[in-house]
Design a protein around this nucleic acid. Structure first.
Length: 899
RNA sequence: GGGGGCUUAGCUCAGCUGGUUCAGAGCAUCUGCCUUACAAGCAGAGGGUCACUGGUUCGAACCCAGUAGCCCCCA
């Protein structure tokens, strides 16, 4: 059933002073949905496409999503109104490690351990969980007004998208861009999986730098001049001592030169190791002696490789001491660190302990401290990738893909130029399994199915015992599926879908809106995928939003409790107000400092618009013939004036949109409606109390109102749709969501300099404490009477003026001022502080004289006249003439008062 | 350590290729108004040595160099 928005309004809203979003928003969302306005299918129109950054499938809406999706909705709604075939594809990400962690936790609460169940059983639980909680976030987006094509909702782990992952993996492997290798990787002991470099967050931490004595061996003591018990090594990681295989010093270090090649004992395990030399060593740090632990540190690993040292991994996958260490076996790594320090102190092998600040890597998802570890994993060869697809970098640098703000270009380049191989295998179950198959001797092939694997083994002449091939147990990094998102949501990888009609029509997409925190995780990799798999960019513009913070600039976080619940906010203030509150202070790339006051501003704005409607709706309309002639002409001028203001604003708004300055576009719209439309235009036309309005003016106002609603619709879709309908008595050919967005253009200029007199007069009233109800007479001294005459009606009404005369003699007593170079006077006999009036005029005069002096100096400067552009010189001449004119007027006025 | 960026009104930000009467906006503040659309409002006002120092230029918030402070990213 199509809902009936009209009835609701009439029952609840008639005559109410305050706008109530609650009875408006849901019904319009439902109306748009039921009428298919969000849906998109390829046609002859120009497409405009955005793919949503897929939120985690088990996520809930937070302020960051609100901002991000509001921006996307603004862009998509504007494009839709501009007649483009707007397509916003929603969906969710399976978020491998994050979701798996949640499922593991949920199972643990039920008393089920992941290690006690099979992969298949685990996946059943995981899918159940996904079905239950997955997509809640998408429903929440509907409350915000997000006009996604929900029929196109995708999930990164659905069959079609998983197939794409496999296809891409195999292609890259066959192209020599994916390899399996043994490397030092990041290990998350909590998630028990490897992580890419991007998933490691470095945090500054207070650490103990322990100075440990490595005693000299008898051999060393006897063969070299030694002082002290042994070499002192400074380390923050004493628990890895059991993995030490050497001590390294700088070859030029005078302190240790004579010891190179000698030996020391590794404490705790009493292993004899060599003292080696390498220029890698920083002589300044600690004692200049480094304990070499190739299994647990990247640099140590390189030194180990160079000097062909043994690798002793002393940690288990869950961060305990491994049996290989020989001591402290089974103890947690951090407990072990404390215990070893204690034990070494007892043996007198700790020289001192210093407090230092260092950076420690943490898992992005589990927050566990990352261990470096040697492991056999799958990698994407990035150097080679970039060599083959240089457009990945050049497209951004040459702005074929534009970044907003552009500062991210350099950040992007820096990353691209220093990028390391991408570790894509994860020791998890929730995700796309790596399409590699191993035979009983550990040889492997890469293929989509076991049958194809057998075929490959056969061709190679390797054993392939049918039924005994084993698929790699690991899954790929989540981002190895989401980098395909702009292609895969349009089935760009599937060969059997209607000629890839959607793909050809919608791809490449237009705009991507995302946070800068995933520029490397996702944006960079989508660009890589775009060029590698399709030879095209995936999108033309990337809008980086800021991070939503509270007004003290703290990040929103659960523990601080400073993050408002977006749904409560919408419930309290309405989606329109919330959207406006977020957008107001959100220039691209700037952090947005969330303050509820801004949402209140949004609410106040809604109310303002609502009341503008109430005013218009309350007018009694009569035919034009019944209106006074001066009212008719004045109204005509007001229409022209507003048309000019409106068109100028439209042009500004288009310009702001072109540069993705959305908050500016919104602010322009806000000021157009509040100031120009409500404060000026409506006040110009508003009939005296009890008087009717003539029909042509009424119609013009309605048209103007409709137009500003159109401008505002992308930002505040609900209230605008509502008012657009009530304004037109529910009789509109197309609802606002698919109506036409105002276009740029030119209008006849209207000289409105005379209006400045209104503010001047109001100011005089205010500063003299005179009531606005007290009418004034006005004398204007001008060469151009017509400029004022046509505004007489408006001036009289808005400044409460009872009579206007031109170029009459100056009054004896009264107030005066300047509008441009025109002088005006208000005769006022009582209670005037003449001295004060004179003082004001003299101050003005002083300022003008000083100003004139500086302009004269400029014009008198030969080099200025010779070098400045002609139009600049012309402006200066005009300034000079104006200043002289004003000074003359002021002197005259002062003189007349003197006499 | 490497890279990017910022510093303009009480707050948040504009200020596009140096040149409108030596800087604009929103919010906040202050003053006066319950004026028949709106007090969630109306009218008006105040508030800035454009971080600092030097340079280039006829002319600098804007270009250059240095100094100080802050933020982000990477190792």
């Amino acid at each position: 059933m199509i809902c009936s928005p009209k009835l609701l309004l009439l029952h609840c809203m008639d005559l109410v002073k305050y706008y109530n979003p609650r009875i408006v928003e849901d019904k319009w969302y439902q109306y748009w949905m039921e009428n298919g306005y969000f849906d998109s299918v390829p046609d002859e129109r120009e497409p405009y496409t955005i793919v949503i950054p897929p939120p985690n499938v088990t996520g809930v809406l937070h302020m960051g999503h609100m901002l991000n999706n509001t921006i996307q909705d603004v862009l998509i709604r504007k494009a839709r109104m501009e007649g483009k075939n707007a397509c916003w594809v929603p969906g969710t990400d399976h978020a491998s490690i994050a979701t798996e962690a949640k499922v593991v936790k949920m199972l643990a609460e039920k008393g089920i351990k992941k290690t006690d169940i099979s992969r298949e059983e685990f996946l059943i639980h995981a899918w159940e969980w996904k079905t239950k909680y997955g997509g809640i976030i998408l429903d929440q987006l509907k409350k915000l007004g997000a006009s996604c094509d929900w029929k196109r909702t995708r999930f990164t782990m659905e069959d079609e998208l998983s197939k794409a992952v496999t296809t891409v993996f195999i292609k890259l492997y066959n192209d020599g861009l994916i390899y399996r290798g043994t490397r030092m990787v990041n290990w998350d002991p909590a998630g028990k999986t490897t992580l890419s470099d991007e998933e490691v967050i470095f945090k500054e931490t207070n650490s103990n730098l322990v100075y440990v004595v490595y005693p000299f061996t008898e051999e060393t003591k006897s063969s070299a001049a030694v002082t002290g018990k042994g070499l002192v090594v400074a380390t923050t990681r004493p628990e890895t001592i059991m993995g030490d295989v050497a001590v390294c010093v700088h070859p030029d270090d005078e302190r240790y030169k004579h010891l190179i090649g000698k030996t020391v004992m590794v404490p705790v395990v009493d292993r004899v190791v060599k003292i080696i030399a390498d220029t890698y060593i920083d002589m300044e740090f600690g004692t200049g002696c480094l304990k070499v632990t190739p299994a647990h540190d990247e640099n140590d690993y390189r030194i180990g490789e160079k000097h062909q040292l043994e690798i002793i991994d002393v940690l288990t996958d869950d961060g305990r001491i491994d049996a290989r260490a020989g001591v402290y076996v089974g103890m947690d790594r951090f407990a072990c660190r404390k215990q070893i320090i204690k034990d070494l102190e007892e043996k007198g092998l700790v020289e001192k302990i210093e407090q230092i600040r260092n950076t420690v890597g943490h898992s992005e998802r589990t927050d566990a401290v990352i261990e470096k570890k040697i492991s056999t994993q799958w990698f994407v060869n990035m150097q080679e990738f970039m060599r083959r697809y240089p457009q990945v970098l050049t497209s951004v640098m040459e702005e074929e893909i534009r970044f907003y703000p552009s500062k991210f270009k350099n950040i992007y380049r820096h990353w691209m130029e220093n990028v390391k191989d991408w570790n894509i295998s994860r020791q998890l179950w929730w995700g796309q399994r790596i399409p590699a198959w191993y035979n009983s001797t550990g040889e492997y092939v890469v293929s989509a199915t076991e049958l194809e694997a057998i075929e490959l083994f056969r061709k190679r002449g390797q054993t392939y015992d049918p039924g005994e091939l084993e698929q790699d147990p690991d899954v790929v990094d989540t981002w190895f599926s989401s980098w395909l998102w702009p292609i895969s949501v349009f089935d760009g990888f599937s060969d059997d879908k209607d000629d890839k009609k959607d793909y050809r029509y919608y791809y490449p997409t237009n705009d991507l809106v995302t946070g800068p925190d995933i520029i490397f995780f996702w944006v960079a990799r989508m660009i890589m995928a775009g060029y590698a798999f399709n030879g095209q960019k995936p999108f033309s513009n990337v809008y980086f939003t800021g991070i939503v913070r509270d007004k003290q600039r703290r990040k929103m976080s659960k523990s601080l409790g400073n993050s408002p619940d977006p749904l409560e906010l919408i419930d309290t203030y309405g989606a329109d107000s919330t959207r406006m509150g977020l957008l107001l202070s959100a220039p691209a790339g700037n952090d947005i400092l969330y303050d509820e006051a801004q949402v209140e501003q949004g609410r106040n704005f809604c109310n303002k618009i609502w009341n503008a409607y109430r005013l218009i709706e309350g007018w009694n309309v009569v035919p034009d013939e019944q209106a006074k002639p001066e009212v008719l002409t004045s109204a005509e001028l007001a229409h022209k004036w507003f048309e000019m203001k409106y068109q100028a604003a439209v042009n500004d708004i288009h310009e702001a949109f072109a540069d993705y300055r959305l908050s500016e576009a919104l602010m322009n719209t806000y000021k157009l409606i509040w100031d120009d439309f409500c404060s000026w235009y409506l006040e110009m036309l508003k009939p005296e109390f009890g008087e009717p309005i003539h029909k042509s003016a009424y119609e013009k106002v309605k048209t103007g109102f409709g137009n500003v609603l159109k401008l505002l619709h992308p930002f505040m879709p609900f209230i605008t749709e509502e008012l657009y309908h009530v304004l037109h008595n529910w009789n509109v050919s197309r609802p606002l969501i698919v109506s036409d967005y105002p276009k740029t253009g030119t209008t006849e200029p209207v000289n409105d300099a005379a209006l400045g007199i209104i503010s001047e007069i109001r100011n005089i009233r205010n500063s003299k404490g005179l009531s606005p109800k007290q009418a004034f007479d006005l004398i204007i001294m001008t060469k151009d009477e017509t400029a004022y005459r046509k505004w007489e009606f408006v001036i009289s009404k808005l400044a409460n003026i009872s009579s206007i005369t031109y170029n009459a003699s100056r009054p004896e007593k009264g107030f005066s001022g300047l509008i441009g170079t025109d002088e005006f006077h208000i005769p006022y006999a009582e209670q005037i502080d003449e001295a004060e009036e004179r003082k004001k005029m003299e101050e003005e005069l002083d300022y003008l004289k000083g100003f004139l002096k500086s302009v004269d100096a400029k014009l008198g400067n030969e080099r200025f006249v010779a070098n400045a552009r002609p139009d600049v010189i012309e402006k200066e001449r005009k300034k000079k003439a104006d200043a002289e004119e004003k000074i003359k007027k002021l002197l005259e006025a002062l003189g007349s008062q003197l006499s």
